[in-house]
Structure formats: structure tokens, C-alpha cells
Design a protein around this nucleic acid. Sequence first.
DNA 1: CGCCTAATCTTGACTGATTCCAGAATAGCG
DNA 2: CGCTATTCTGGAATCAGTCAAGATTAGGCG
Lengths: 134, 134
Amino acid sequence: MDFQQLLRGAALRVTRPRVAVLSAVHTHPHADTDSIIGAVRRDLPEVSHQAVYNTLHALTAARLVRRIQPAGSVARYEARVGDNHHHIVCRSCGLIADVDCAVGEAPCLEASDDSGFSIDEAEVVFWGQCPACS
Amino acid sequence: MDFQQLLRGAALRVTRPRVAVLSAVHTHPHADTDSIIGAVRRDLPEVSHQAVYNTLHALTAARLVRRIQPAGSVARYEARVGDNHHHIVCRSCGLIADVDCAVGEAPCLEASDDSGFSIDEAEVVFWGQCPACS
DNA sequence: CGCCTAATCTTGACTGATTCCAGAATAGCG
DNA sequence: CGCTATTCTGGAATCAGTCAAGATTAGGCG
């Protein structure tokens, strides 16, 4: 995966921290910011946490990563973008798994009554117990 | 609405803070903890924030209220329980509206592949712009 | 190739929601 | 009415995330 190319394609400057963050998100799907900082520092021990926060925001805005945040969790990031898939979260250990969207493009569901809102996305989170916890 | 009865029915002790919190959640759907503290203190100016946090947890565990927390938001609470409805959240102002679930009982959706999880709930959050913001 | 400037990064303080804790108050049983 | 476990108060602590100022650097331009 050519991360430099991905960054350039999104009109983002190529810096070591950014490449490392993008790489870490690809390597660790659903990781929280702290884990990403840890992963990045294995390559670049000097990166500040602020640089990682900045980068994650920039990458999210550029749609190179997606931010997910199940209720009660800190922010997590994944590199799988553009396919509108959903997630299963384990109530016990917090493990997150991907679920393909059976319906297709976002928004994949119609609201029964949209209260006048213009809807652009339907986010689905399944809750339950993972195999290890049940 | 007889809040004392609701509390007793859930085997919870009836205290002034609890009645006030339960009442506030009924009166202010989707309110965050701070708003609830404010509403409660209109009746009981001396209530500690900790009592409100404790009570909200107890009420949530007893299923007398439901906790919702769209990504990027603080915890919010609503008294509408047991009907598995969903929510629309405005990306601009954070306004939340209820959406009836078209499908029925929880979990109202099947995951295409559950990865071995046992699923008990499918939470749907629609994202868009509310009438005022669009 | 090297300069220049805006974008990015480092450092460190700060915020705000939530939790933790110890001691005082109280609901509700007997 | 008194007892005890539960709940409440007050205050400190935690933790993710943000803010801000000054140093560094990517990448366009000559």
C-alpha cells in the first residue's frame, strides 16, 4: 500500500508522522488513538500525541480513514472506507468486528419518518457478545 | 406519571433526587447530564452532580431510562424505553429526533455475517441536517 | 539547487465529562 | 422507633481530547 500516494491524492502533505499514522490505522483496524500513538512511536519514537490527533482529524476529513465511536468508547479509527459497512460491538470486552452492509450504498436504510431531516447516512451498530465472551 | 411507583416497581429506593431525575428525563427527552442536573436543581437546589450520575446509572440499569450517545456527543438520556426506536442526529446542531423502528422488536435487523457474536440489539443512527440547519 | 511561506509538529497547559472516595444522611425493614 | 445497607454530599482525581505559541519542514518557485 502506497501511503504517500494516498496522502498526495487527498492533497495532504506527506510527512513522516502522517505516513506512520495512516500505516498504523491500516495495520490496526478499530484501534483507539492511544494504540495508534503507540504503534506510530515504534517507528517514530518522537511523535507528539498532538501530531497524531491532528493527523487523524485530517485523514478523517479527507476520507482516508473513518472514525467510529460506539457509545461508551473512545474514538476508534479504521481504514476501510467508502463501502458503508457496519459494526458489531461486544458488550463485555469491547471487541469490534465488521459487518458488510446487506443493502448497498449509504444511506442503506430509509427512516420511517425523517421529521424533516435530510439524511445522508444510516449508521448501524449491532450489540452483543463476542465468541470469546459468550 | 407516578415516578415513585416506577421506582418501587424496579426495586429502587424512592429518594427525592431519584424522583427529580426521573421526572427531568421524562420532561426533557435527549437531554445531557448537565441539563438534567440543571432541571433537577430547579426543584432540589442542593443535589450533588454525583447523585445525578449515580441515579442515571441506576435508572439505566433498571431500564427505566435509556442512555444514548451518538458519536462525538456526551451521554444523553430518554424515558422512552422498551419500543426499540431509533434516532436522527443533526450533524450541525446536534438536535436529536426519534424515529420509529419500522421492523419491530430488537434486534430489528439481521447482520449479514455475525462473526460468531450473539446479537441482542441493532442500534440505528441516522445522520443528516435538521430542518432548521438545512 | 536553495529560498520562502504556509502547513505541520512539539511542548505543555488546559478543559470538561465522568469517576473515585470518605464520611454524613436517610429509606425502609422489623 | 431503631438499625443497617443504600444513597447522598463534597471534593479530589482521571482521562480523552483541545488550545496555543513557538520551532520545524514540505514543497512550490525562481
